[in-house]
Simulated scan of single mutants.
Amino acid sequence: MPIDTAAALAAPPRTIEISWDHKDVQLYHLGLGAGVPATDPLELRYTLESRLHVLPSFATVAGGGVGVLDGLSAPGVDVDLAAVLHGGQHVTPHRPLPVRGEATRSSRVEAVYDKGKAAVIVLRTEAADADGPLWTSHTELYVRGEGGFGGERGPSVRPSTPVREPDRVVERAIREDQALLYRLSGDWNPLHADPDFARLAGFERPILHGLCSYGVALKAVADTLLDGNVARVRGYGTRFTGVVFPGETLRIAMWREGEDGSGGGGVARLEAVAVERDGAPVLGDAVVTYGP
């Protein structure tokens, strides 16, 4: 059934109350591969409740998260889950995320774009607590076979990767069970666990969540370029340009831009590829903005 664009855009925001505590944060960080080596003081900031800080990408799973399944439950959206891929994600934290929190989360379909052979649904989510706004996020869902309805194509300008060698390159191993652990943070899409469903969706076996790769890359930037200070992150967005299979290695290249050398803010551009498949693209057009 085609997407009813008018109904999706006219629907009021869906608002719910969410909460989380240190266990949710620790589980999320472990799902990204944090805690290796287990006694490393830098890793303990992700795993030990007495030292815990919160990676801003936790906003994508806080309270169960707003992702593929949430976007597909919007009014006017009735599509085959096997035809859906997570196309892109952006999170803007308005202040450091607390280790424990209660918040009101509102989400709505902000746009539906016609890409010809596919449609792109843009879901906007905002969260706030008693002290004010916490984060704003945008989720792009790519729905194969639902384009061609005569709608706007959407923005096409993308950030460019610097034409020089990256400032840093790191590799992060993706464990065989990493998707099984990450999905416990709330993304139950069977694409990441069920071999039969993965084949139905066109993959030889279950793939890692795009948002897991997203979090792995942000952690790498924070640990490598930001001295491990996750509170410096002001925004983070990427396109999902390919997939990672559990058991592969993610190679993340980073370029610094805009710093004045005085410890101020700047921009980090990054790309991520799968090493074992000859550098197959995974994340593209990725940008992390950060403060002092």
Score class of each variant (00 low, 15 high):
residue 76 G to V: 13
residue 79 V to F: 08
residue 81 L to G: 03
residue 83 A to F: 01
residue 83 A to N: 12
residue 83 A to V: 00
residue 86 H to G: 05
residue 90 H to A: 08
residue 93 P to E: 05
residue 93 P to W: 13
residue 94 H to Y: 11
residue 95 R to F: 13
residue 97 L to N: 03
residue 99 V to C: 01
residue 99 V to H: 01
residue 99 V to W: 01
residue 99 V to Y: 01
residue 99 V to M: 02
residue 100 R to M: 07
residue 102 E to T: 15
residue 103 A to T: 07
residue 104 T to D: 03
residue 104 T to N: 00
residue 105 R to C: 06
residue 108 R to Q: 13
residue 109 V to I: 15
residue 112 V to K: 03
residue 117 K to M: 13
residue 117 K to Q: 10
residue 117 K to I: 04
residue 124 R to P: 01
residue 124 R to H: 14
residue 126 E to S: 09
residue 126 E to H: 06
residue 126 E to V: 14
residue 129 D to C: 07
residue 129 D to N: 07
residue 134 L to V: 11
residue 135 W to M: 02
residue 136 T to C: 07
residue 141 L to T: 07
residue 144 R to T: 03
residue 145 G to K: 01
residue 145 G to I: 00
residue 146 E to C: 04
residue 152 E to S: 11
residue 153 R to T: 15
residue 153 R to I: 13
residue 154 G to S: 06
residue 156 S to T: 15
residue 157 V to D: 15
residue 157 V to P: 00
residue 159 P to L: 09
residue 160 S to R: 14
residue 160 S to F: 01
residue 161 T to H: 00
residue 162 P to C: 11
residue 167 D to G: 11
residue 168 R to E: 14
residue 170 V to W: 14
residue 171 E to H: 02
residue 173 A to P: 14
residue 174 I to L: 14
residue 174 I to T: 14
residue 176 E to D: 15
residue 176 E to P: 12
residue 176 E to G: 04
residue 177 D to V: 06
residue 179 A to R: 11
residue 182 Y to N: 08
residue 183 R to G: 06
residue 183 R to T: 02
residue 188 W to N: 09
residue 194 D to Q: 07
residue 203 F to G: 02
residue 205 R to H: 04
residue 205 R to I: 00
residue 207 I to G: 07
residue 208 L to C: 09
residue 211 L to I: 13
